[in-house]
Design a protein around this nucleic acid. Structure first.
Lengths: 205, 205
DNA sequence: ATGTATACGTACCGATCGGTAACATTGTCA
DNA sequence: TGACAATGTTACCGATCGGTACGTATACAT
């Protein structure tokens, strides 16, 4: 869900002036529609209609639909790391518990009807072209996720931290995808358990 | 890559007559374009152009673009289980080796530039609506994958076979997705190693 | 009150979307 | 050669796509 924080960081780059109010409504609506139904599936007409604004307003705040999609993902990115940091902050100095908290949360999120997975992952699937503005944001987010997981694997004292970090990433991505593929009762509910088994098997003896 | 086998099973349902030749060219081209660039990203005009046929020919063989996409996935499904069964047949009676062979193959496939992941997974991301013809095929394929993996986990003598089977599925889906997200050197290359660790940790002692 | 800038709306653009009607042409087998 | 099925040709449909030219309203400062 979109929040109101840091909107000005994502919609209008550069100049520090306050953004038009229409831009916030547009981004909020675009966030919701892009996430739930996909970026390619949503036209700008539907966005402006649901936002109660007009098309020129959209194009005054965003240079193109592709850039609006990138802005949506930048907002998604902010909220993603907020959730991640919450799990980390809940267990200071205990990376294994941090991971477990994050994965338990993911496992729970996937167990709702019409779960739509990770907006970053979905956007990358929709736009295979690496130069697409939305994909650039998506790839950066995933690189950062990999970096953090590998760092936590080091902290945990894994025998091969890169392998464990990557294994955790695979489980996480698998949970995002299978969550939207299987719905309730799908494999994603087992992500935390499997991660725990994998971590246990990967620690130095 | 599309093969020529079993085309008649996927393009025209019901009557057992040989399919028109244009239909095969159309399906081959659609297979390639849908897989590499996405279903929503490709218009029927581009398909018929690349296939060297005309639009009416497409709509004589396929009732709609959505059904053509479903036919593409049915073909994908056939080839998917061919690859799976190859890995199984290579190690009779040894499910752990079967899994390892299948995952090693996936790990290798992901390590090429512009890898595009699993066509089934991608289609599900593109079409969140569960009633979409393409998604119906995709979900059936994934259900079958889950069934097989859980059955193999039983054969392997896992303590909790459902959890292990689901864990393997998560790793596999993670490999598909991260393969296209990270490109060369990504986490997907560690899928076989992590699966092996997970299996080892999941067996009855 | 009046200028000035900024935000917004009406109406429109060409291109492309998926899909079709009507008819001409081809290849094949009897 | 006749007959039939498959394909091609051309032109078209309404809807939607992303995007814009241009006029209007509103706010604020002087």
């Amino acid at each position: 869900m979109p929040t109101d924080k840091n909107i000005e960081l994502t919609i209008s780059d550069g100049h520090a002036s306050a953004p038009p109010k229409a831009a916030k409504k547009i981004l909020d609506v675009a966030y919701d529609l892009f996430y739930r139904r996909g970026i390619r599936a949503i036209g700008v007409d539907e966005i402006v209609k649901r936002a109660g604004v007009t098309k020129p307003s959209l194009y005054r705040s965003f240079p193109s639909k592709d850039e609006l999609a990138a802005s949506y993902l930048r907002q998604y990115d902010l909220e993603y790391w907020e959730r991640f940091d919450e799990a980390v902050a809940a267990h200071p100095g205990d990376p294994r518990a941090q991971i477990k908290a994050f994965l338990t949360r993911i496992g729970k999120r996937t167990q709702v009807a019409d779960y739509r997975g990770c907006g970053m992952t979905n956007a990358a699937v929709e736009y295979p072209d690496h130069s697409h503005p939305a994909r650039v944001v998506s790839e950066a987010n995933k690189q950062e996720l990999r970096r953090r997981l590998r760092a936590m694997a080091v902290e945990m004292g894994a025998q091969d931290p890169d392998t464990l970090g990557d294994g955790l990433l695979l489980l996480i991505e698998g949970a995002y995808i299978s969550g939207q593929l299987f719905g309730l009762g799908g494999p994603a509910q087992a992500v935390s358990r499997n991660a725990d088994l994998l971590i246990e098997a990967s620690l130095k003896k």
